[in-house]
Design a protein around this nucleic acid. Structure first.
Lengths: 344, 344
DNA sequence: TTTTATCACTCGAAGGGATAGAGTGCCAGA
DNA sequence: TCTGGCACTCTATCCCTTCGAGTGATAAAA
C-alpha cells in the first residue's frame, strides 16, 4: 500500500491525533486537534482530512458521533514514517544504568531487575528473556556428587550464564567414576555450543571409555541435562501497570492477557520469533502479533548480546502506547545489557 | 471471646451460610438457607439466629435489606471449629503427584510446577517459596574460573538446592590460587549452614593462608556470595484466577493486590512469618494478615521440609474461599514435596 | 479551487424517576 | 419457643429524557 503519498497535512493530522489519543485514551475530535495543536487550519478542514484518513483505513470511529482513534495500520505508518526519535531523559538513563550496571550476582538477577526497571519507567509490562542457550558455548561442566545417588550437574557458559541440574543416578557410583566422567565431558564438549552438543552428543561420546551407567545420562540428546538447561527463563514485571490501562477495564480482556503471560514458553517463543526477522528495535502492533490473546497489544522489543548468544527484552502494552519513548527505553536498556553481559 | 458457646442451631446456620456464600458470592438470606439446606426450621427462625450471629460479630449485612455475609471472625470460627476435613479427590491427588513426583531438574523447577498445580486445582493464587537457605547446610563450594577476571561460585546444599553467583575478581588471579582457595573454603565451611557461615565467616577464615585478594570476596559476611545466595525465590501462579473473583472486580483492589505480589521479598517475608508461629496448616484470614494490601484475602499455607531446612507453600485468595478443600490441597502438596525433597 | 463558518443530525453518556424484588424486623398466634 | 404474616427498607434495573460532543454537508468566503 502506497502510504508514502500521504500529503503533509494528512501526516500532521495523523501525527497529532495519535499523540493526543495516546495521552487521553478518548476518541479525538477535530476541535480538540485544532485547539491543542497550532496547525493553522480550522476544525472543518481537519474533519475533511480525517475523512480521508478514515478511507485509507488509518483511523476509525467507534461510533457515528465520536472522534477518531488510530487503527493498527495508522500506528504502523506513524511508527514507520512519522515518529520522531526521542532522547531518553537523563533520569531514565540513570535509572537503567544503576540497575543494570550496578547489579552483581549473575545474569538472571540482572535480567530480573531489568524487566522491573523497564516496567517502572514505561508504566507497561517489562519483559526479559535470558540468552538462548542453544548458541551459548559451554565453558565448563562440573559434576558434584551429592548424597544418596544424586549428582548436581553445573553447566557454565562462556557468556557468564550458569545452569544447575540435579540428576538421579545409580547410588553405587562413586566420586572416582564421577571425576573421570567429568574430565571426559569437559574434554569432549567444552567449547561447543549447547545446540551442537545436543545434535552430536551420541557420536561424540560413543566410543569413549568411562562408566556407561553414568554416561548414559548424558548420551541422549533429549537428556534432562541438555533439555532442562535450555528452558527459557522469562521475567515479567509490571502487571499492575496494565491493570491501570483503560483498554483492560474489561475483565475478560485482562483475563486473556494474563492467560498468555502465564504460558511462559509460548510467550517466550513469540518474542524470540520477532527478533529472528531483524535486528535493532522491532515493533509489533496489534493484529501483527501471532498470538490472538495479545492482538490488542503492541510489543516493543530488541535483542541484547551475551557473549556469542542473544536474548530478548521488550515492553508489552496496549497498542495505544508512547512508541517513541518506549523505543528509546528499550534501545538504551538493550545496549547497556549487551555492554554488561558481553564485557563492553 | 467464648465463641464455643454457640448453640447447635447457630453453628448449623453459620456453617450453611458460609458454604452457600462461598459458592454464590452473594449475601445469603434466610429463605435461601431454609430452602437449600434441610434444617427443619423456618426462615423466620433462621432470621432470629442470624440476628444473634450478627450481634456476636460473626456475620454482617452489607445494607439493611440484604442477606448476610460472614465476617473475618465468622470465617475464623468456621475454620477452627465447624469445618469438616475434606478428602482430596483422587484426580487432584494424581495431578499433584504427577507434577511433583515426576519432575526432574532440581528444586526450583519442582517448586515452579507446584505453584502452578496449586493454582490450577484451587482456582486461586498458588505460591511457593524455596527452602530457607539460612538453615541449609553447605555441602560443597566450587569455584569455576571464567574468562576475563570472572569467577563462578557454585554453592551446593545438602538439600539438593544449588545457587550460582558470578563474581568479579582481579584479572590476575589464576587457576592455581583458585583451586587453593576452593580447597580452603570447602575445608572450613562445608557442613555448616549458610547462617552459621554468615555469622562467623570472619573468624573462620581469618588466619588461614591463601591469596588475600580473592579471599576478601568471601570474608565479609555481607558479601555478595552469602547475601545473593539467600535471596528468596518466590513462585507465584494463577493471577488469571484472581481476576475472575468478584471481590476483585474493582480495579483499585486488584491493583493493590498486584502491587504486593510484585514486591517479592515483602511477600516472602510475610508468608515465612506465618510458618514460624506453628506447624501444619496455617490459615490467616483477612485482617489477620500483616500487610494491609492483602487484608481482604486469606492465606492457606504449610511448610515443607527439604533436608534440614524448610520452605513454604500456600494459596492466596479472597476470604471467601473453600477452606476445607484448600486445606487438604495444601496439606497433600506439602507432604509430597517433603517426600521428594527430603528423600522420603 | 480550497478553506471556513454554520447548521441539522446522530449517538452515547449521564441523570432521574418508577418499579420490582429480595430480605429484613417485629408481632401475634400456635 | 417457633412460625406465618406483614409492613418496611433498600438496591438493582429499566426506561426515559436531556445534554453535549462530534460529525457531514452545504454554501459562502478566500
Amino acid at each position: 500500500m502506497a502510504y508514502e503519498n500521504l500529503n503533509e497535512r494528512e501526516k500532521k493530522v495523523l501525527s497529532c491525533l495519535i499523540s493526543y489519543y495516546v495521552a487521553s485514551a478518548d476518541p479525538v475530535g477535530s476541535r480538540a486537534i485544532a485547539n491543542k495543536f497550532r496547525l493553522g487550519i480550522s476544525p472543518a478542514t481537519i474533519r475533511n482530512t480525517m475523512q480521508d484518513l478514515e478511507e485509507m483505513g488509518l483511523v476509525q470511529q467507534p461510533h457515528t458521533s465520536a472522534g477518531r482513534i488510530p487503527t493498527d495500520a495508522g500506528y504502523r505508518i506513524f511508527v514507520d514514517t512519522l515518529l520522531r526519535q526521542e532522547q531518553l531523559s537523563e533520569a531514565d538513563k540513570h535509572a537503567i544504568d544503576s540497575t543494570i550496571l550496578a547489579m552483581a550476582g549473575g545474569v538472571e538477577a540482572i535480567l530480573d531487575q531489568t524487566s522491573r526497571v523497564l516496567a517502572d519507567l514505561s508504566r507497561q509490562l517489562g519483559v526479559t528473556i535470558s540468552p538462548k542457550l542453544d548458541d551459548s558455548i559451554l565453558f565448563h561442566i562440573e559434576l558434584i556428587h551429592m548424597a544418596e545417588g544424586k549428582v548436581l550437574v553445573v553447566l557454565a557458559f562462556k557468556s557468564g550464564l550458569a545452569r544447575t541440574i540435579l540428576l538421579e543416578v545409580d547410588a553405587s557410583i562413586g566420586w572416582v567414576e564421577l571425576s573421570e566422567i567429568s574430565r571426559l565431558l569437559n574434554e569432549k564438549l567444552a567449547g561447543l555450543s549447547l545446540g551442537q552438543i545436543r545434535r552430536s552428543i551420541t557420536e561424540r561420546l560413543h566410543d569413549s571409555g568411562g562408566d556407561p551407567k553414568l554416561l548414559r545420562l548424558f548420551l541422549d540428546s533429549e537428556s534432562d541435562v541438555w533439555m532442562g538447561a535450555d528452558a527459557d527463563q522469562l521475567h515479567i514485571e509490571g502487571t499492575r501497570n496494565i491493570i491501570e490501562q483503560p483498554e483492560f477495564a474489561d475483565r475478560q480482556k485482562l483475563w486473556e492477557l494474563m492467560k498468555i503471560l502465564e504460558k511462559r514458553t509460548d510467550l517466550a517463543g513469540i518474542l524470540r520469533n520477532y527478533q529472528e526477522t531483524g535486528s535493532g528495535i522491532i515493533i509489533t502492533i496489534g493484529a501483527e502479533n501471532q498470538a490472538r490473546e495479545i492482538q490488542s497489544c503492541s510489543v516493543v522489543s530488541a535483542s541484547y548480546k551475551a557473549g556469542n548468544t542473544t536474548g530478548t527484552i521488550g515492553i508489552i502494552g496496549p497498542t495505544r502506547m508512547p512508541y517513541a519513548k518506549l523505543m528509546s527505553l528499550v534501545k538504551y536498556a538493550a545496549r547497556q545489557l549487551s555492554k554488561v553481559l558481553s564485557g563492553e
